[in-house]
Nucleic acid binder design. Structure first.
Length: 455
RNA sequence: GGCGAGUUGGCGGAGUGGUGACGCAGCGGAUUGCAAAUCCGUGUACACGAGUUCGAUUCUCGUACUCGCCUCCA
């Protein structure tokens, strides 16, 4: 079996993937808080871990991989959105989840095997919170339950932080009910206007971090293989998740490998609303940038490195995909994925290396197609954008003009033939002169009106 | 202030202790009436300074710069 190695944040090493249950892989990726459209930065982990999912399915078999991505549908941002819009929380979360799946699907992201929602796992969170209290790792105070960071000597081991250093330099407002500045909330009280559930500590709602610990355990049990997300989640979210699970279970096996993708920038600058370079996946799709092209851009840089989203990168991606699509028209994919592609992906998900490998397969369209499919490219479902424009009534005119040009060339009337040639170019008609005569096809910017003056 | 990541040719972007990936652009050639398309060829790149080594872009230390996180954030 292909050996897969992945970089683990905790150990800072590339570790061979050795599944807890031999032959079966479990992967948990932190999903969105559903209160608004996903932006392009949100899309990176989705596409990155989708690609890993595809690799795992290829190597271990489709039925032997379980990919879980949660929806955080209880959160103060959602509450705020509901309050300001007057809409119900469930309206907002349902709509946003639908958007999310549509937008991610447009980039060829497969849906996970399981997509648990926080609101459907409240009992599991309460249970885990009780366990943490029982084991002395958490305490109830004023309707809150807090995790005691000091009770966990390994706290900080994932993100490589020292608790004392953090307190020293931090701008943390210490709530009166906290025993220690770093303690974080497992459960907090809800007022009448806030969603809440009955609990041993009164009506309330869970803190953010507990949901992933509880839901991952519900699906996988105490140990699973890969836990992923953006590196901004490394601290505090994943650190806290790891602490909760470690302290509840008495071992550090929550995830064998922690993976974190790098952040996305736009034209070299941090993406932010104030800079005006903040956009959602839907914005890009509406602008006419195909989801497949977005996917390509997101995979053309190694996942751990920062990724700069640029117009130029988009157009290069589009050009490459168009070329590959042209090369593979009517081709059946090879039965096996080319080893060069598998080898690149198996080495810490080197998608840029895999794309380079695909460039090397342009002489082998069947292999190219098989390899590209492995990366989620060149599917029919994502390919509509690359279809040639409709020729409409212009076909006859184009044929006539080609004939006229051929005549002109025979007559050595080069002024005429060159005028037609240039006119074709301007109108988006691509003419290729071959030994058997001229063939033509339409460019994406085909404009039949521009042919009128040539006749 | 603390922690982490990054710095590769015109651009993008892999990788490696010893023969300079790959793509785009550029340049030269073939082809063409001229082009387009195609094909062939083409680049003394690894932030800087020390160190280790027979040899470093690749390892170590330091410096600079960029970015991220430390507060909701993928």
């Amino acid at each position: 079996m292909t050996k897969i190695v992945l970089h683990d944040t905790k150990t800072k090493l590339k570790k061979p993937l050795e599944p807890v249950v031999p032959g079966k892989v479990g992967m948990y990726v932190c999903g969105p808080t559903v209160y608004d459209r996903a932006h392009i930065g949100n899309a990176r982990p989705v596409v990155v871990f989708d690609t890993l999912y595809r690799l795992l399915r290829q190597v271990y078999g489709t039925d032997n991989v379980t990919y879980v991505r949660n929806f955080t549908d209880v959160d103060d941002k959602i509450n705020a959105r509901a309050a300001e819009s007057g809409r119900s929380i469930s309206d907002i979360t349902e709509e946003t989840i639908g958007w999310y799946l549509d937008d991610m699907g447009a980039m060829g992201a497969l849906e996970p095997d399981e997509a648990p929602r926080a609101t459907q796992s409240i009992d599991a969170m309460i249970k885990m919170t009780e366990e943490l209290i029982a084991k002395g790792h958490a305490y109830a105070a004023e309707g809150h339950v807090l995790f005691s960071v000091k009770s966990d000597p390994e706290y900080g081991s994932l993100s490589h932080r020292n608790v004392d250093d953090m307190i020293a330099g931090a701008r943390i407002e210490v709530a009166p009910y906290k025993r220690d500045a770093m303690d974080f909330v497992l459960w907090k009280p809800s007022d009448a206007d806030t969603p809440g559930w009955d609990s041993p500590w009164g009506r309330g709602r869970p803190g953010w971090h507990i949901e992933c610990s509880a839901m991952a355990r519900e699906v996988f049990g105490e140990r699973f293989d890969i836990h992923g997300g953006g590196n901004d989640l490394m601290f505090p979210h994943h650190e806290n998740e790891a602490a909760q699970s470690r302290c509840a279970h008495g071992h550090d096996g929550m995830a064998s490998i922690w993976m974190h993708n790098g952040m996305l920038q736009v034209e070299g600058a941090k993406m932010s609303k104030s800079l005006g370079n903040f956009f959602t996946v839907k914005d890009l799709l509406d602008k006419g940038i195909p989801g497949e092209v977005i996917r390509f851009v997101l995979l053309s840089t190694h996942y751990r490195a920062p990724l700069d989203w640029t117009e130029r990168g988009v157009s290069e991606a589009e050009k490459t995909l168009r070329k590959w699509r042209t090369l593979t028209v009517g081709i059946e994919p090879a039965a096996t994925v080319p080893p060069s592609v598998i080898a690149a992906l198996s080495d810490d998900l080197n998608t840029a290396g895999a794309i380079a490998a695909l460039h090397g397969l342009t002489g082998d369209p069947a292999g190219l197609l098989a390899g590209a499919s492995m990366l989620g490219f060149l599917s029919d479902a994502l390919g509509e954008w690359a279809d040639a424009p409709e020729v409409g009534d212009a076909g006859a005119m184009i044929e006539a003009l080609i004939a006229a040009r051929t005549e002109a060339r025979k007559a050595k009337d080069f002024a005429r033939s060159d005028a037609i040639r240039d006119g074709f170019a301007a109108a988006g008609v691509i003419v290729k002169d071959t030994a058997d005569g001229a063939t033509w096809e339409l460019a994406p910017d085909f404009d039949p009106a521009k042919l009128e003056g040539l006749v």
